[in-house]
């Protein structure tokens, strides 16, 4: 089968036109992956094509890049599947990270954030002489998070990082969950305090991109949500995030649909002067949004009505809370 690969390239040493696209036409077999094709180009057509790769079996995490705009591992993405789905193959370097050359990006920001969450087991007492005794299931439950190969596909497609690169990102937070959920680690309180702040778990917008692109089924977003739960269960509720979550639930419980105006009030703690003061900037930030909504006649009603049958909703809540 003959295919064309449209490769987004970057040559930092060229004087001009250092960002360019190049199309390579090559003969591929059915089992060829995007990595096989790129290696064919690099090994036999253009030795200057730069990329990282090693294991060819989705375990080393070197070859995360974008294929037709979505991040994943080149080594487990079959060309034939891509063609069947999209009709063409466009390859680009991973996003949200500076490009070094062609498909090679600088992973340093990714690793710096990994270091920030103190990614190692911490215990308070002395180590036991033998192994730590831990329930069988507790270790099996960690295999999913430990399966993360740090390829950065989630980081590359994270929509939060696109607008705020201070966010710790899905991989680092999933790593943090791995220690929080480890019965041997004794730093939950410290970890919660850190992740409860700006750049932490509340900055995730739950867009699911990380879950969709993760080649190893780590489900980073689900792990971020589970940290949120644990933080709130630990009684740490003085954040906009926690107020948003609780407010959301209570509005649904009482009205059956979402009242955006009330949600803003609850999230920013408008009736609590200390909280409101701390949110003054965010509140003013909402004014243009409110104004635009008003102009387009999309401002939510000031007085929200309960839906018919809200009693049933309350019953569901009751059941869930029990």
């Amino acid at each position: 089968m003959k295919v064309k690969l449209d490769v987004g390239r970057y040559n930092p040493e060229a004087d001009e036109n250092n960002h360019f696209r190049e199309e390579f036409e090559l003969e591929v077999e059915d089992h060829f992956t995007v990595l096989d094709a790129l290696m064919q180009i690099r090994d036999y057509e253009d030795p200057s094509l730069a990329m990282r790769c090693s294991c060819r079996a989705s375990i080393c995490g070197s070859c995360a890049m974008k294929v037709n705009g979505t991040s994943g591992l080149a080594c487990n993405t079959k060309i034939i599947d891509v063609i069947r789905k999209d009709g063409s193959v466009k390859v680009d370097p991973a996003g949200n990270l500076p490009v070094v050359k062609d498909l090679v990006v600088d992973m340093q920001p990714f690793w710096n954030k990994m270091r920030e969450i103190k990614p190692y087991i911490q215990v308070k007492g002395p180590e036991p002489e033998a192994e730590y005794i831990a329930p069988q299931q507790s270790m099996l439950d960690l295999v999913g998070a430990v399966g993360c190969i740090m390829c950065g596909a989630c980081y590359s497609d994270c929509t939060v990082l696109e607008v705020d690169n201070n966010f710790l990102g899905p991989a680092a937070l999933a790593k943090a969950s791995r220690f929080i959920d480890d019965p041997r680690d004794e730093m939950d309180a410290e970890r919660f305090a850190q992740l409860n702040q700006y750049t932490g778990v509340w900055d995730c917008t739950r867009c699911m991109a990380c879950v969709e692109v993760c080649p190893k089924g780590v489900f980073p977003m689900d792990r971020i949500m589970s940290i949120r739960d644990k933080i709130m269960n630990a009684g740490m509720k003085n954040t906009n995030g926690a107020r948003h979550a609780e407010g959301f639930a209570s509005i649904i419980k009482n009205y059956g649909t979402l009242d955006e105006t009330q949600l803003v009030i609850k999230t920013f703690g408008v009736f609590n002067p200390i909280v409101a003061l701390s949110n003054i900037k965010s509140l003013f930030g909402l004014l243009p949004v409110a104004f635009r909504a008003f102009r387009k006649k999309k401002l939510p009603p000031i007085f929200h009505h309960k839906i018919v049958g809200v009693a049933f909703i309350k019953k569901i809540f009751k059941k869930l809370e029990a």
């Binding site: 192994e131 329930p135 270790m139 680690d185």
Partner: peptide
């Protein structure tokens, strides 16, 4: 194990 490797356990947690 002390470094944090999540070795498989038996039913007694060892």
């Amino acid at each position: 194990e002390h470094m944090g490797v999540i070795f498989n356990r038996d039913e007694d947690g060892r």
